[in-house]
Simulated scan of single mutants.
Amino acid sequence: MNQVDDLAEILPSLLPRLWRFGLRLARNKEDAEDLVQRACVRALERRHQLQPGTSALSWTFSIMHSVWLNEVRARQIRSRASLEWSEELVDTVATPAGSNPELKVLYWEIMKAVDELPDAQRVVMLLVASEGLSYQEAADTLGIPIGTVMSRLARARLTIGQRFHNDGRRAVRSPASREAGNMRDPRVV
Rank of each mutant, 00 (worst) to 15 (best):
P16Y: 09
A176P: 05
S99P: 00
E71R: 07
L23K: 05
A138G: 13
S58H: 05
S66T: 15
D5M: 10
V36Y: 05
E30N: 12
A171W: 01
S62I: 02
G98T: 11
D5C: 11
I144Q: 04
A176V: 07
G161T: 14
E109N: 03
L25R: 12
Q121N: 13
Q51A: 10
I63N: 06
R42D: 02
A176H: 00
S58I: 00
Q49K: 03
N182L: 03
L83E: 15
S86G: 01
R163V: 05
L89S: 08
A154G: 13
G143Q: 09
L133K: 07
Q121A: 02
S174T: 07
E45R: 13
V128N: 00
T60I: 14
V172W: 05
S151D: 14
E102L: 14
T60E: 11
E71T: 07
P186H: 05
E116M: 04
S62V: 08
I77F: 12
E179M: 02
L57S: 01
V114H: 12
G22Q: 00
A32M: 12
A180L: 15
V93M: 09
T54E: 08
S151C: 01
S86W: 09
L117K: 02
M111C: 13
Q49I: 00
R24F: 06
P118W: 10
P145I: 15
S79T: 08
P118G: 09
P101G: 08
V128Y: 01
V124N: 00
T54P: 08
L69C: 12
S130P: 05
T54A: 04
S134Y: 06
D91H: 13
D140C: 00
P145Y: 15
V105F: 02
P175K: 15
